[in-house]
């Protein structure tokens, strides 16, 4: 299981929508200090994140699932 894609470059202000396509619950959580989280997303649920800066995130339920989003310069 993994974020797909697990690396993404977007423009500042873009909204990224995370969609759980799995049959188990996942979340999207800021990796370094857990400053934000989507809260648990069950199958089929989605969550939007407006990108204002580079972010590294993971699933706090499956801690080896990681991803990053960078803002294009």
């Amino acid at each position: 299981m993994k974020f797909f894609p697990d690396s993404l470059a977007v423009n500042k202000g873009d909204t990224v929508r995370f969609v759980n396509k799995d049959l188990v619950v996942h979340d999207v959580t800021e990796e370094l200090k857990q400053t934000w989280t989507s809260s648990p997303l069950s199958t089929g649920k989605s969550w939007d994140l407006v990108i204002t800066q580079n972010v590294a995130y993971f699933c706090s339920l499956h801690v080896v699932m990681k991803g990053k989003i960078v803002v294009k310069r």
């Binding site: 299981m1 974020f3 797909f4 873009d14 990224v16 929508r17 995370f18 969609v19 049959l23």
Partner: peptide, 14 residues
């Protein structure tokens, strides 16, 4: 504003 879909591609784990 652009919307980008990012899928949590998981695999069952059956």
């Amino acid at each position: 504003m652009k919307m980008i879909k990012l899928f949590v591609k998981v695999n069952l784990l059956l």
